[in-house]
Amino acid sequence: MTQHDSGTPKPTGTAAFSKFVHLLQLVADSPEPLSIPKLAALSGYPRPTVYRSVGGLVAEGLLIESLNGETYQLGPRLIQFASRSWDRSELRLVAVQALKALRDQTGETVHLAVPSDDRMVYIEKLESTSAVRMASYIGSSVCMHSSSVGKAYLAALPQAQCLELVQRLEYTRFTDHTVTTPQGLLEQVRQVQEQGWSVDDEENEAGIYCFGAVILGAGQKPVAAISISTLKFMQAPDPIQAYVQPLLDTCRHISQRIIQSPVLADSKHIW
């Protein structure tokens, strides 16, 4: 064991493991395969360190060389891990039938997201019954400040925890509608707390409007959130009746199932 600055024991090898994970995340988040020089620039690690780390990840099947031999992408072993995690997710298994019913009732794309650090990660996506398809996918993540799932989750946190998280977020602007300050986000969070649901009004993507609501576990702790995504110009005339009420009913139903489940009642074991 080693010690870090706070004096808390830290497992030996944590630094090296963190480098591996950071490099994997960079590759996963990139829209195209990355080279060693690009990974070094993005990570801030020395090129020899990146070269050794990537070599280890390739040896374990977590990364593979692209056909050009100069760039890297996610390997089959990592994809296998992710697939098994997704298939065995207790939350997803409990929620999936209700999510399908919500998608069928609204006719719109439905996402189930869980918090991961300062973002929300999609663990289920059910496409709209229309011909319109969204760019999101299972495993992708969205920022809390610009997404309906993120704002729904923030609004359900204890006040001190919510404030701390809001203050440390990075406020990337995605559209002209994106909130870019902690004060602006807190105003939206207060509105979510008053009305019981959140919105993303073209804040992540132009033309896309989302409604969000939180799933609660034991002790009313937020464990996940659901969103309904619509094309803004094609919304139903009465969005509260068409989208918000079914969304809230679905969240309550899943929350009840979680609380009644011995495995899921403790949010630490939600996966």
Rank of each mutant, 00 (worst) to 15 (best):
A131C: 07
I79S: 15
S43A: 04
V199A: 05
L112G: 06
R133A: 14
Y171E: 08
L154C: 06
I36Y: 05
S18A: 15
L112A: 04
S35A: 10
Q97I: 03
L163E: 15
F211P: 00
E202I: 03
S136K: 02
Q3K: 14
Y153K: 07
G61C: 03
G184Y: 03
I270E: 03
A218D: 08
Q183L: 12
G13L: 01
L169I: 07
L24I: 15
P239W: 07
Q191I: 07
L23V: 13
R47N: 13
Y72H: 12
D238L: 04
G219Q: 10
I254N: 12
S85P: 00
L39I: 14
L23N: 06
S30L: 11
K100Y: 03
T71H: 02
S146N: 08
P11G: 01
Q25W: 11
D117N: 12
Q80M: 13
A15T: 15
K221A: 15
S198D: 03
K19S: 09
A101C: 06
G150T: 06
L185G: 03
Y171S: 05
P262F: 00
K268F: 07
V27N: 01
L74P: 07
M120L: 06
L91P: 02
R252T: 15
L78W: 09
G196H: 02
L24S: 05
L169F: 02
K19V: 12
A265I: 04
G150D: 04
T250I: 00
Q167Y: 07
P31S: 05
E203A: 00
Q167C: 06
Q3V: 15
L126K: 04
L102S: 01
A15S: 14
R103P: 03
T129K: 13
A16L: 13
S146T: 07
